[in-house]
Amino acid sequence: MKKKEWIVLLVIGGIALIGILALQILGKMRAKQNQALQSTYVVDVFVDDKVVETFDPNENATYTIEGNYGLMEIEVKEGQWHVSHVECPNHICEKMGWKTVDDIEPIVCLPNGIQLLARVNGN
């Protein structure tokens, strides 16, 4: 590879790393803000643009959502939630693991068009 090409790759890599760092810092800031404000959160389950279910992450429960491809099972336990089972070809959302209100990345299943987004209760 030419020297110029290495420089371009280093610049792109640098931008990506700055982006990842910024996301991590934002996540920590959000966690601190949550502690300070003691905000209560709810999680909206979207199928495409519509909210089909809203749950309190502090109430242990299991929800089954019908997406565009098949069913998704969401398990909520002690302020955390994860996808325990999903009918889709990728199963990426299952691998995303447990999420809390401090996590900046939401759980998304693109084949089903399902997104799990946390928001401050009342907003």
Binding site: I12, A16, G19, I20, A22, L23, D48, I104, P106, Q115
Partner: peptide, 24 residues
């Protein structure tokens, strides 16, 4: 395409730095 299909630029932007870093 995700931005256009799901109208969620914020959600897509969260994954882009990770995708760029691993694409190299």
């Amino acid at each position: 395409v995700v931005i256009v299909l799901y109208n969620q630029p914020g959600v897509a932007a969260l994954t882009l730095p990770y995708l760029l870093a691993t694409s190299i």
